[in-house]
Design a protein around this nucleic acid. Structure first.
Lengths: 259, 259
DNA sequence: CGAATGCTTGACTGCGGTCAAACGATGTGG
DNA sequence: CCACATCGTTTGACCGCAGTCAAGCATTCG
């Protein structure tokens, strides 16, 4: 159904779209990405990256949303991240702790194995040089979201956290073409949002109601409409730093900005 | 003053001690580490990693404590991490966002340039193979602390956050031989602790008072005594996962533990 | 239809923030 | 040497954001 009548490998197209916005891939690399097969289905609650033997399998999310939960001893839960289509999980390079954490499907999720990619890069680093650096960029983006997550949890009010989270999702979904006008799909329940943002289910609901009341967003049946991006951005102290190098703080004077 | 009468390069000894607990280095690698010179002094509030031109310089902290602050638009501050002697900052490999963030001295800090290390690894990856993998391990440890930080900020009470933080510092300082008995140096002010743990200065004080009142810790003039490690560990839901592979969660069932 | 899941609302409570003042230690200049 | 400023800690009073408990509602599904 593609305009160019390709094989219709919907899977890698998202990742490809994302990568090609920042990196020029060689034909061989594009071909490798488009050749990925063997998609696998994961029901909600099942682990995506951890295989039967306990070893980690790299996979690309094609459809559905996932997360990386950390379960506390009292049974409560804190999400480290949210994964959406086009995200690579279980990246074996560097054995990063974040990628060693189990990834759990939140909706029905369809993935393809990314092992051919990493095998190819390991076999011929030169030929797949651009692809490797594109994946490194994805890793950096992920860590960037993690740093934002820390600030969000540490210093933002509930209102700011929800707004900031919606904006992050807005920009991430924009990059894979999932935003139509000002609307995007948002299958996360309010309980999951609470576990992500360090809030209670009830309070997430109250905050969302307020955002709706103030006409900043709309939300119906799994679809969010961001009515006022700039107002939301101001409210959430959100900075669009999806680029390569983060902004460097001007002042050497630590927290001298304290008034 | 060393038992073996070495050059007395106190600097790299801490890093060396840390590395040799987990990795066997070759004589050439040890020699490289011990040959590092040109230590530089940074006053409190000054940036360590960012040089004059805005480029990032890798350095090893020899003396003093530092942090990675994120300043919000309203002037408040959230620390992403705390750095202690033996920590490598501004690691250029992978251009990790965390290592691109400015590192700011909290006390007077003495560092040495780690550039010779990364140059050597780039020049002869085989010869300095063990050193490279040791540095990769340090990066992983750092990311591990970051993940803990997220959980701490998201789901812990003020009491747990402070306890958890003290335990993290306890174990990190233990690894570089800075813990004597149950005491260790702790030059962080309560304001900095607040900025690290997402709490107000006042509340940090209240919590510390409570921990003292309950005889879990003592604290006088920049020295902390952990009186009851196990009680503190239980209180803070702290897990000692400084090893290579993090523990894998048993249950595939997401947050089914929710009672 | 009932059961399960997720959303919404209200009442109440308490953890932790804010404001303010005072105290102790350290340092500095007249 | 003392007066004074600075920095960090400590304490009290007050308040509000957000958690908890509980019930009711909406939607989907078997």
């Amino acid at each position: 159904m593609n305009k160019r009548g390709m094989t219709g490998n919907f899977t890698a197209e998202l990742l490809l779209r994302r990568i090609q916005k920042v990196t020029q891939l060689s034909p061989a690399e594009v071909e490798l990405l488009m050749s990925l097969q063997k998609s696998k289905l994961h029901g909600p609650g099942s682990q995506i990256t951890v295989g039967e033997g306990g070893d980690v399998h790299p996979r690309i999310i094609a459809v559905g949303w996932a997360c990386r939960p950390r379960i506390l001893t009292d049974g409560r839960c804190q999400m480290l991240s949210i994964q959406i289509p086009g995200d690579v999980v279980g990246d074996p390079i560097d054995q990063r702790p974040l990628d060693m954490v189990p990834v759990v499907a939140l909706t029905p999720v369809r993935t393809v194995s990314a092992k051919p990619i990493f095998d190819a890069i390991a076999r011929d680093p030169v030929k797949f040089r651009a692809l490797a650096s594109a994946l490194a960029l994805l890793r950096r983006q992920e860590e960037h979201f993690l740093l934002d997550h820390v600030v969000r949890l540490g210093r933002h009010t509930a209102l700011q956290r929800v707004a900031h989270c919606l904006l992050e999702l807005y920009h991430r979904l924009l990059a894979i073409g999932f935003v139509h006008g000002e609307c995007f799909p948002m299958p996360l329940t309010q309980e999951i949002l609470g576990d992500l943002l360090g809030l209670s289910l009830v309070h997430v609901n109250r905050v969302l109601s307020q955002l709706k009341r103030d006409s900043l967003i709309e939300m119906r049946s799994g679809v969010v409409s961001v009515l006022d991006v700039s107002a939301l951005t101001r409210l959430a102290d959100f900075s669009v730093t999806i680029r390569d190098r983060p902004v460097v703080v001007e002042q050497p004077a630590l927290c001298a900005a304290h008034r």
